[in-house]
């Protein structure tokens, strides 16, 4: 099988290796009921996003119609069909976060990164997404960057938070008072 570099990953793993790892996951999950969503999550973890070839492979292996796989991927905002940046910024717009200023936080991030929701910065560093409730309403307004949750975020602090994730900018990390959880 010809291998090629995966657009969405860090460039160190090649596509063939990832596909072999996916196939191993598919073998494990094939017989399990309710396998589709966990498999999609794992696949997105492997590839960084869900390319068409991966979705079709999942459809065939789990013997689920491609339309059903697509329906699930399209339903959940967590799943992405586009290659994403090194870091995924998710802004919660659930009710609590929204009323406590989540929208202003989102606007500040859009301005800071110069991208719209669903887009990736030109340097491939950040992707921006919105979510409906992380289940962390006590921390509202909250954002997540990759697996880190940042609480009580204010628009003015956005630059500070994002700078922690910019590679080799010469600044010390994690200076914000909100800190990482």
């Amino acid at each position: 099988m010809p291998t090629r570099k995966c657009n969405g990953c860090d460039g160190k793993s090649d596509h063939g290796v990832l596909l072999r790892r996916l196939d191993k996951v598919l073998r494990e999950y094939r017989e399990k009921p309710g396998a589709l969503i966990p498999v999609l999550q794992i696949a997105q973890g492997l590839f960084g996003y869900l390319p068409e070839t991966v979705l079709k492979r999942i459809s065939l292996a789990l013997e689920k119609p491609y339309s059903e796989v697509a329906g699930v991927v399209g339903f959940y905002s967590f799943f992405s069909r586009m290659p994403r940046g090194q870091h995924v910024v998710r802004v919660c717009l659930g009710t609590a976060c929204y009323v406590r200023g989540g929208k202003q936080v989102l606007d500040a991030i859009r301005k800071q990164l110069g991208i719209e929701v669903g887009e990736t910065t030109a340097d491939g560093n950040f992707s921006l997404e919105v979510a409906r409730c992380f289940g962390a309403c006590g921390l509202a307004p909250a954002i997540m960057v990759d697996n880190d949750t940042h609480q009580r975020v204010k628009a003015a602090r956005v630059q500070d938070i994002l700078s922690q994730y910019v590679k080799r900018v010469g600044k010390a990390k994690g200076r914000s008072k909100g800190g990482k959880r």
Binding site: L55, K64, P65, Y66, S67, E68, V69, A70, G71, V73, G74, F75, R81
Partner: peptide, 28 residues
């Protein structure tokens, strides 16, 4: 047991369609 159609997308945008709302001619 063909599975060409399935609900795609979410909420008001939900559509009974082939995968990702593409055309029927492109799918099985």
């Amino acid at each position: 047991s063909v599975g060409a159609l399935f609900p795609q997308f979410r909420g008001f945008k939900t559509e009974m369609a082939p995968a990702f709302g593409q055309n029927l001619a492109n799918v099985a």
